[in-house]
Write a protein that binds this DNA or RNA. Structure first.
Lengths: 178, 178
DNA sequence: ATAGGTGCAAAACCTTTGCTGCAGC
DNA sequence: GCTGCAGCAAAGGTTTTGCACCTAT
């Protein structure tokens, strides 16, 4: 899954391919045989019917290294089973989201993208040059969000935090005169 | 403008009407005579033509206590000048956004909403029960965002932070056993 | 058997755009 | 008068939905 947990500070969780253009391919290591995955287990646990389409969509999303949108998912699924419709992808994502199996993301640009909900909570930094999305965690920010909501008289039930940045070339990183 | 800067901690900036349903009306204190406003001044400063439509849209947005979407703006403007088209509202918002005169917001639910850019930077807390949007500032969160981006090798050029909360009844606020 | 899922195509929804005429500067 | 802006309607892209058929349980 290429989940790099490398940063010494514990902020960086993962990187991924770009998403700017619609040019990704299905992960090469995905034979037609359906492997069990966490999403299938969750379907069973929540009483969702385990249809062939759902199995495929679950597998494709489980194996995704990026944050695909419905169109991406459909394209990848269609490589395994061409008859699956885009409507089914949308319906499945909606259902999965309602069951807490996937998370719907809405970065700038309008259309929704999805990720499995099983991972630990994290937020996203979007590389504006490549479209790459980097996941990160920051406990202090989380704490402050709770505090802000409480001060305003609310109980925090959700949040959305996205950072948009441009990469700093390595040579500039030491000079702090930016 | 009902910008309440009340909270002792400095977090709360303003409150507004609900937006869940499309049932707002134009601010009652807006006679047909066009008052000068900051947006008009900015138009002049940036060489934008000051058409009647832009004047109206600028006025309506200046006087808005909430964060209206294009449809809202159009409805409010149409009460003053029924011939103004929705396309003009969209084009004007796009142009104003490009000039840094307005900010485009995209909360959950898809469609864009707008606010004047002249205010100091702030983020938003959305009341999930009423749809009310509360603006707040938190310098510490801002600092941490910068730090996270830097650690990941990026220069932060923008961010989006939205908190979603449900109001805590006053009587419960003292009990911290939530 | 039956409730629920799927495919297809059409609609809904928000937003943009082509074109023609008009108005601000 | 030129250029940019407006109105209208049509197209754009994403997501949802009506309906008939199918299938997992």
């Amino acid at each position: 899954m290429a989940v790099r947990e490398t940063d010494h500070s514990g902020n960086r969780i993962s990187g991924e391919e770009t998403r700017t253009a619609r040019r990704r391919a299905v992960g090469a290591g995905s034979p037609l045989g359906l492997r069990a995955n966490r999403i299938e287990a969750e379907c069973r646990a929540k009483g969702l019917r385990l249809t062939g389409q759902r199995r495929l969509i679950a597998q494709v999303l489980s194996e995704a290294l990026d944050h695909p949108d419905a169109f991406d998912l459909h394209r990848r699924v269609a490589m395994l089973a061409p008859h699956v419709s885009l409507a089914t992808v949308y319906r499945t994502m909606k259902r999965f989201e309602r069951e807490g199996i996937v998370k719907r993301l809405e970065f700038r640009g309008g259309h929704a993208r999805y990720e499995t909900a099983a991972k630990r909570h994290h937020d996203h930094l979007i590389d504006l040059e490549t479209g790459q999305v980097v996941e990160f965690r920051n406990a202090e920010i989380e704490r402050l969000q709770e505090a802000v909501a409480r001060e305003l008289g609310y109980r925090l039930v959700g949040h959305r935090l996205e950072l948009y940045g441009v990469p700093v070339p390595a040579k500039e990183r030491s000079e702090e005169d930016l």
